[in-house]
């Protein structure tokens, strides 16, 4: 077992503990916590399976394993980004509606107050 192998396993475990810690302290809402837990467990499994992955990469014609890992990681990160932009757009839309509703309510409150002060 060489040093690189140990570093990969250690960092994947570290990542898993960070996610578990954040989940325990309620710093992630449930659905995101679950998503990141899944990712970090996959990370740990992959780290332990590194030697087998090497064989797999060679079998499908990739002579340099890290390029396969980079490719997969890149695709995962890209889909996450799109997903987050989608969530962001949804939030923006909701905030816009809320801001408009707050403005309407403020106007109504002002009108009621004016009527009160008159009567």
């Amino acid at each position: 077992m060489n040093t690189v192998y140990l570093i990969v396993i250690a960092s994947s475990l570290f990542f898993l503990f960070v996610v578990i810690g954040m989940t325990a302290k309620n710093k992630l809402t449930d659905q995101y916590a679950f998503m990141w837990l899944t990712f970090s467990i996959i990370g740990v499994v992959l780290a332990f399976a590194l030697p087998y992955l090497n064989d797999f990469a060679r079998a499908i014609g990739i002579s340099y394993l890290p390029s396969l890992i980079f490719l997969l990681a890149f695709l995962v990160v890209l889909s996450l980004l799109i997903y987050h932009t989608h969530l962001l757009s949804k939030q923006e839309h909701r905030i816009k509606t809320l801001v408009q509703d707050v403005a309407f309510l403020q106007r109504e409150i002002q009108e009621v107050r004016k009527e009160d002060s008159r009567s």
């Binding site: 816009k96 801001v99 408009q100 707050v102 403005a103 309407f104 403020q106 106007r107």
Partner: peptide
């Protein structure tokens, strides 16, 4: 008038008028 508590930009402002 209706005062938006945050700046929504022209689209959000005009839409407030249509909702009104």
């Amino acid at each position: 008038h209706v005062t938006l508590p945050l700046n929504l930009g022209i689209g959000g402002a005009v839409q407030t008028g249509f909702r009104y």
